[in-house]
Amino acid sequence: MTAPTLQELAALRAEGAVHRVLVPGSGESWLVVTRDAARAALTDPRLSNDIRHSASWQTDGGHAVGRNMLQTDPPHHTRLRRLIAGHFTPGRIAALRPGVERIAGDLLDALPRRGTADLVGRYALPLPVTVICELLGVPEGDRGGFHTWSNELVMPTSHEAAAAAADALTGYLTGLTDAKRRTPDDTLLSGLVTAADSGGLTAGELLGTAFLVLVAGHETTVNLISATVHSLLTHPDQLARLRAEPELTEGAVEESLRHNSPVHASAFRFATEPLELAGTAIAAGDSVLVSLAAASRDPAYFPDPDRFDIGRRPQGHLGFGHGLHHCLGAPLARTEAAVAVRLLLERHPSLALATDPAALTWRTSTLLRGLAELPVRLG
């Protein structure tokens, strides 16, 4: 199975909740495509995130950077999540909002008032990169390089390139944590180093947690911002409604999460014992992949699910997952996307696509889906 299209997922969903598929580079797996079955799988304690429960496990793979909470179950997952959860509370995110607005405003100031620009490279990407790097404590001069490495790891172009990116990012984060150890500050990474030095984290967990915050803290948000703008520009009735009712901006972002899930699927789960999922027998050691995109377009819960409607109240979509591994950074991603869309539309009232939508390239992997670029006319 290559990364399935939304149409292919819909066809599978019409046939049943769980399907046996072949995932390139990972072998056979069960793919879950309905909302009920997805929620059940994401909360079933018999489905572990630890690859060592896989029947085919031999090593953790050649592209892992440390060990993070997405690769663990309670109690280790609980301990690792608790170490960074305090940085993503509603109060902390509210305090970050003025900074997000400042960064977005600066990026918009750098765009020409008229002409064309790639909204991914000039806006949707540098906004979350800057925010998460400031939070984590990545020096400004280093921010371009790490995105190249992380993008290769989440959407690999080849085995060799992914391995090289993992080595490069491992070396960079090791050097950065050493620098924080020598010169502590008030950033998240410095706090993680302190936790590691006091015995709260292993060296591998320190590296893995820094990697997860850095990568998950921007990759999905880039896709969310660009997909939301794309959906608005390709649905002029919805764009007109949002311009008339800017208070619907958060609703537009929420509908974009449902309609164009930036995270297409969960991380693999592995059955620790035989179980049944939506009437399908899963053997111990089998892998299970949950399609968040398919679940969020399930017509049993979302009437006319292929319609983009910013007035919809899409409660229950799985754009940020569900259960113990629900995305910790969801409040920050929502804030960044809402700020980005609102300020962009305010600054550029004549914003329009600068190319045929059919000519746009969507980059996909097992986990993620996003636009490679989004050429727009600014005025």
Rank of each mutant, 00 (worst) to 15 (best):
L371T: 01
I84Y: 01
A3D: 04
R258I: 11
A104F: 02
E373N: 14
F146K: 07
G321H: 12
V138Q: 04
I51F: 00
I103F: 09
L328G: 08
H19P: 05
L108A: 02
H235V: 01
D73F: 05
G379P: 07
L232E: 07
P274V: 02
D142I: 04
D186Q: 13
N49A: 15
L80T: 00
R312D: 08
T183A: 14
F320V: 08
A244D: 11
L135T: 07
P45C: 02
R46Y: 02
L9I: 12
P303L: 06
T157V: 10
T89Q: 10
E276N: 05
L188R: 01
V215A: 15
P126D: 06
G99C: 06
L275D: 12
R20V: 01
F268M: 14
Q238L: 09
G145K: 12
M1G: 11
P98K: 10
V32D: 01
E219M: 00
L371Y: 03
S54P: 06
A17I: 05
I103D: 06
D186G: 13
L173N: 04
E28N: 08
L173M: 08
T366E: 10
V215F: 00
L367N: 12
I51R: 15
R46H: 03
H322A: 07
V263E: 10
R377F: 03
L108F: 10
R269F: 08
L324T: 11
V129Y: 05
V229N: 07
M69R: 00
Y123H: 04
T187M: 06
I225D: 09
A165W: 11
E250L: 13
P246K: 14
S190H: 03
L107Q: 08
